[in-house]
């Protein structure tokens, strides 16, 4: 399948601190790709490079055929949607206003069209009833759903989700996984998900890349089943057989 994201020998981290070295993988259009690993291994750092918040330290990274740079920045931001770990909804706006914001800024729709589109997005994540609620009045799971609705508003090509299960109970977390699968089916969008929750990985992932903090790099790539059953790497085997490995 045609790749929408490609990383070639990428060094990830922050100026003066390389966290992951020589990372190479690609994400195919329409797949759910998981960035996987123990706490502090650099999953979120890689995602911050993918969404253009931090420049890579070396190698080549392309999203939808373009590298991040001052000229491509605006175009690339229109191709991606991001759900942050906390939801990152704007606290002074209702859920509906949060979804309306990108539509007001970037579309030529009139007010009623914008409202209709925003309600459509909220309905897609089953949040239409909470449209007029403030983020402080809803649960963590609902905030994440509303954040997904906001990310969907401009119909991005890739949706990035940072730890969607973090801080959620297993039932809510599973419901969020169902939502991701439903959206994948309906929108044919590409999903890049940062997580270390094994049940989520087996439920939603097409493929996953696994990172290790100690070795500063990517240590496995494949379907969750392949990683679990065929990997020879002791860290990968430990992760899949005993759950998350810290450190």
């Amino acid at each position: 399948m045609e790749p929408i994201i490609e990383l070639e020998h990428v060094d990830a981290g922050y100026p003066g601190a390389v966290i992951l070295k020589d990372v190479t993988f690609s994400v195919a259009r329409g797949e759910v790709f998981i960035l996987l690993g123990g706490s502090g291994c650099g999953k979120t750092t890689i995602m911050r490079h993918l969404i253009g918040l931090n420049p890579i330290l070396g190698g080549k990274l392309t999203v939808a055929g373009m590298s991040w740079g001052p000229e491509t920045r605006d175009a690339l931001f229109r191709k991606i949607g991001v759900m942050y770990q906390s939801g990152a909804l704007f606290g002074s706006m209702t859920c509906l206003e949060n979804v309306l914001l990108p539509l007001e800024e970037f579309t030529r729709m009139n007010a009623s069209e914008r409202r209709e589109r925003a309600m459509e997005c909220l309905k897609a994540v089953e949040m239409a009833d909470a449209a007029d609620k403030m983020p402080s009045e809803i649960s963590g799971g609902m905030r994440k759903r509303a954040a997904i609705a906001r990310a969907l508003a401009l119909e991005p090509e890739v949706l990035f989700l940072d730890e969607p299960s973090a801080g959620l109970d297993p039932i809510t977390s599973s419901a969020l996984d169902d939502l991701i699968l439903k959206l994948k089916e309906e929108t044919k969008m590409t999903f890049v998900v940062v997580t270390h929750e094994l049940p989520s990985i087996f439920k939603i992932a097409d493929r996953a890349a696994m990172f290790d903090k100690a070795r500063h790099g990517m240590i496995a790539l494949g379907t969750p089943q392949e990683l679990k059953e065929t990997s020879e790497d002791p860290f990968v085997r430990k992760f899949f057989n005993r759950g998350e490995v810290h450190g």
Partner: peptide, 9 residues
């Protein structure tokens, strides 16, 4: 939220 604003363009 600032990151969210940035990635929304």
């Amino acid at each position: 939220e600032l990151d969210a604003l940035t990635t929304m363009g």
